[in-house]
């Protein structure tokens, strides 16, 4: 018996979306429910999980305050530092460079983001570590310089790791900018500086917002950079989570931290989206 077109349409849609839907359910929705349940549970007698409904774990968040403070401080500061370096590059690529070289230069800026963050962070570990730059400084007579395992090293690693992600959205919004507006500004007698601050910068704000939000959000869950360049001295939420899940094995408390982290991400994302919306409608982000 042939199927009705209506039924057939629905069946094909279900078949197309079925695998992805099941995947999202089993490996995103279900795991998230699991950590929500764990976060209101108790620690079992031998370190496992004991079912309960208590907000004890959330009340204890204060004991890991240092990780939260470090993350919530260094994530925006890191994102802002990225922004300061990224803006001129994005501006140059979008406005100054000739179109033939643009594709290559743009690819060279984006490519590192998709290569191993571990390897790129390792490069700085190697440069800042005892046998790197400090050793070089010793050869010219400057002794006892400590670069690695400082907040500065972590900040440097952050800028290095996330610069491409900041450049991309700013570049996209600058590239879309209507050149006629700049000409109009000059025709009306504005100086280049005035044009930049009154025309270019405000129109690129959606890109700036997107980049800032993306980098901040990714930094909130960062583990490798503070681990390798901060050497346990600069502790992020990600480091606390690794400790709680893989070393001290307090899963309910770790789950509470993870749930809180997701909540922070959602709040930041909502604010960023509202702001971007208010400034200039939505902009798509080109991540690759």
């Amino acid at each position: 018996m042939p199927l009705k077109p209506q039924t057939r349409h629905k069946l094909v849609t279900a078949l197309l979306l079925g695998p992805a839907g099941l995947w999202l359910f089993f490996f995103l929705v279900l795991p998230f429910i699991a950590i929500l349940v764990f976060s209101v549970g108790k620690r079992g007698p031998v370190g496992g999980y004991a079912p309960a409904f208590t907000f004890e774990q959330f009340a204890n968040l204060g004991t890991r305050a240092a990780a939260f403070v470090n993350t919530l401080e260094l994530a925006p500061v890191g994102a802002f530092s990225c922004l300061l370096v990224a803006y001129p590059v994005a501006y140059y690529l979008a406005v100054k460079v000739n179109p033939q070289r643009r594709l290559l230069l743009l690819s060279l800026v984006v490519a590192p983001f998709w290569t191993s963050l571990l390897m790129r962070t390792y490069a700085w570990m190697y440069l800042l570590g005892g046998r790197g730059i400090p050793h070089l400084l010793e050869l010219v007579g400057i002794e006892n310089v400590r670069l690695i395992n400082t907040p500065g090293a972590v900040l440097l690693g952050i800028v290095y790791g996330y610069l491409p992600l900041m450049i991309m959205p700013i570049y996209v919004s600058l590239e879309k900018l209507d050149r006629k507006l700049l000409e109009a500004s000059y025709d009306l007698g504005a100086k280049p500086i005035g044009t930049f601050f009154r025309v270019t910068l405000p129109l690129s704000l959606p890109g700036v917002m997107t980049g800032f939000a993306l980098v901040t959000i990714l930094l909130l869950g960062e583990y490798l950079i503070p681990q390798l360049l901060g050497g346990g001295k600069v502790f992020f939420i990600g480091n606390a989570l690794v400790d709680l899940f893989l070393q001290s094995r307090n899963w309910p408390f770790g789950s509470a931290i993870a749930v809180t982290l997701v909540a922070v991400v959602v709040v930041i994302l909502t604010i960023a989206m509202r702001l971007t919306w208010r400034i200039a409608g939505t902009r798509k982000v080109d991540l690759v």
């Binding site: 995103l28 699991a34 583990y223 899963w251 997701v262």
Partner: peptide
């Protein structure tokens, strides 16, 4: 959500589940 949730949280949640 699958894209913005930090990797560390995806790892933990999958482990627990």
């Amino acid at each position: 959500a699958a894209i913005v949730v930090p990797g560390v949280v995806i790892g933990i949640a999958t482990l627990v589940a």
